[in-house]
């Protein structure tokens, strides 16, 4: 009886099971594709303040020209509460091959000392951090690729906190990193955070992508 019933119904069962299997496979495959990391809008260059150097250059007798002088607020700490990131920051420079330096310890984030700093009237304050290291495991910015527009980043510099709101997150293959767009200084004040991500090339020990986060000062 049961056998007869099955004998009649197997084609329908096979049809349904097949559709479910094929559909599931397609969905599963789509779910394993790398995230696009294409969130939000990169801030425009914006309006830059006009600096009249000639005003301070007149014969050394000018008064009040010192107003144009600003003390660099050197970042010492960065926090991203939404991701549980809270790390010390040290200055870094650029090597002869153009590679931005990065602190030897993966738990420490670098601040490009050749770029801008919090509170300046223009320029990009650039932070760079390890996503991880082969020797030490997850780095300070391990969770950075999960950041999204609207989330807050705070930078501690000159004994106060500077709040920034994330505007955009992008992934770029390292070979095509738009350096001028990421590191360029002819822009209204912004914070740029760079780390590595995307697929990992075990042969070279490097990630193939840079993850770049743009943020602007919170109002």
């Amino acid at each position: 009886m049961l056998g007869t019933l099955w004998g009649r119904r197997w084609p329908a069962a096979a049809l349904v099971a097949g559709i479910v299997l094929a559909g599931g496979a397609a969905a599963g495959c789509a779910a394993t594709r790398p995230p696009r990391h294409d969130y939000g809008t990169i801030p425009a260059a914006g309006t830059l303040p006009v600096r009249h150097a000639s005003h301070v250059a007149s014969a050394g007798k000018t008064t009040n020209a010192g107003a144009a002088i600003s003390v660099t607020a050197v970042p010492v700490r960065v926090a991203i509460p939404a991701l549980g990131v809270d790390a010390p920051v040290v200055p870094v420079g650029v090597a002869a091959d153009g590679t931005l330096g990065i602190p030897a310890r993966p738990s420490v984030v670098g601040w490009w000392a050749g770029g801008s700093s919090p509170g300046r009237s223009s320029g990009a304050t650039v932070l760079v951090g390890h996503v991880d290291s082969a020797a030490a495991g997850p780095g300070a910015l391990f969770r950075l690729p999960a950041i999204r527009p609207g989330e807050v980043v705070t930078v501690t510099a000159a004994s106060r906190s500077w709040r920034y709101v994330v505007q955009a997150v992008r992934a770029y293959p390292k070979a095509t990193l738009p350096a001028a767009r990421v590191f360029g200084q002819q822009v209204a004040p912004r914070l740029v955070i760079v780390t590595c991500g995307g697929p990992f090339d075990a042969a070279t020990g490097h990630y193939l992508d840079n993850i770049v986060v743009w943020a602007v000062p919170a109002r």
């Binding site: 050749g114 991880d132 082969a134 997850p138």
Partner: peptide, 26 residues
């Protein structure tokens, strides 16, 4: 301390592969 070099061209910020995107075979 002061920074050397000009505008950066690249950043190498990971060597562990822990944060790599999933590469589950298809």
């Amino acid at each position: 301390q002061y920074p050397l070099g000009g505008m950066p061209l690249a950043a190498q910020a990971g060597s562990g592969g822990l944060g790599a995107d999933p590469t589950t075979p298809g």
